[in-house]
């Protein structure tokens, strides 16, 4: 390397300057997203049917007893906003991990059926077993993890090829979808509404009790996932190239899958499979960041921002109170069309 630098110092300067510029941009994007998330979090505590001054909100968070605000902000808005934040973070991280690992922007965990086990379990838990909300969450987590394991094992044949993993996931998820519609077919109208809301993904049932497992999962798994991003970037070059660069491919892949799947499972259990958060966050942040470095962390931040904003819109902007998943889900079709238009113009790569 030094030889090259001595040979053409000008080129080296250009390269170094470019590297600095990109690093600055990365930093800027991350800081910008983090600030936006904090602002969205604070706004969702302050604003609503009743607007509380920031001082009241801070006082409530500090543990003071403020008339009215203690209940509205402390019991209703805070767990809701925190759940939204954590779910968005988890989905964004997991989505981007899968998309990068499988080298396809369409291959996010929600599309390839990782969360379908959670949906089936939740519907059975609500309609057949009549479980309490926190029991439904626990059941959904366990079944989601099992489903992912089954998908992995069925895709395994002398190693897991990305293609097989994706297609087996799609197969399993359509089978589970028919289980869901069978259970729904026998349901009473009221239960049906509850189940449909769960299936769409919503933050109405957010409590500290349901938030806790997700919080723990995010705190434990995020650092692990971020430590793996360098290997993940190598996997993007193809399994063989990554192996040649010294990455233990299968072990890294298993670790990545375990982290991402667990994030999906705990997130889905806390708030339902909020559609397209995992799907959208990765490609959008990758576009903001440009082609350098791993988009995983930024994608997590973007996911959190997306859920917080979408939940606010769903609650207050439309007359009827919708589950948040309706808003994020409605973004899905336009985004697919956007992918289409863009690749028409650039003849780009999927």
């Amino acid at each position: 390397m030094t030889a090259v630098q001595e040979a053409s110092p000008a080129t080296a300067d250009v390269v170094a300057a470019g590297r600095r510029r990109r690093a600055r941009r990365r930093l800027l994007v991350h800081v910008g997203l983090a600030v936006a998330v904090v602002v969205a979090l604070v706004l969702s505590l302050v604003l609503g049917r009743t607007v509380y001054p920031l001082s009241d909100v801070v006082a409530v968070i500090m543990g003071a007893d403020v008339d009215g605000a203690s209940f509205t902000v402390g019991t209703l808005r805070l767990p809701r906003a925190l759940t939204g934040l954590m779910v968005g973070l988890a989905f964004g991280l997991a989505g981007s991990t899968f998309q990068t690992m499988l080298r396809n922007p369409l291959a996010s965990p929600d599309v390839i059926g990782i969360s379908s086990g959670a949906s089936a379990a939740a519907v059975i838990g609500i309609l057949v077993l009549d479980l309490s909300p926190s029991a439904v969450s626990a059941f959904a987590t366990v079944v989601a993890l099992l489903t992912a394991l089954v998908i992995y094992l069925l895709a395994y044949r002398q190693g897991v090829a990305n293609t097989r993993l994706i297609l087996v996931g799609i197969g399993i998820s359509s089978m589970l979808a028919s289980v869901v519609s069978y259970v729904l077919s026998g349901a009473a109208a009221w239960d049906m509404q509850v189940a449909m809301r769960w299936l769409t993904g919503n933050l109405n049932g957010a409590t500290y009790e349901r938030l806790l497992p997700l919080l723990l999962a995010v705190v434990v798994l995020t650092p692990v996932l971020l430590r793996l991003t360098r290997d993940l970037e190598a996997l993007r070059l193809g399994d063989q190239t990554a192996a040649a660069l010294g990455v233990p491919v299968e072990r890294v892949r298993v670790l990545l899958i375990v982290c991402a799947v667990a994030l999906m499972a705990f997130g889905t259990a806390a708030a339902g499979p909020i559609a397209f958060v995992a799907f959208l966050s990765g490609p959008i942040t990758a576009r903001i960041l440009g082609p350098v470095g791993s988009p995983v962390l930024a994608s997590g931040l973007f996911g959190a921002l997306l859920v917080l904003v979408a939940d606010f819109v769903a609650q207050y902007a439309l007359g009827t109170r919708f589950p948040v998943g309706v808003i994020t889900g409605a973004l899905g079709a336009p985004f697919l069309i956007y992918l289409l238009v863009r690749s028409q113009r650039t003849g780009g790569v999927m």
Binding site: L106, D110, Q193, F322, A330
Partner: peptide, 29 residues
Amino acid sequence: LKLALAGAATSVALGSLVSAILLPRAQDM
């Protein structure tokens, strides 16, 4: 592979639109 993925993603997207339309309308549901 790409057709299956495109189909799955489109199904999820259209499914969300279906529930967006149906959720406030119990009768139609």
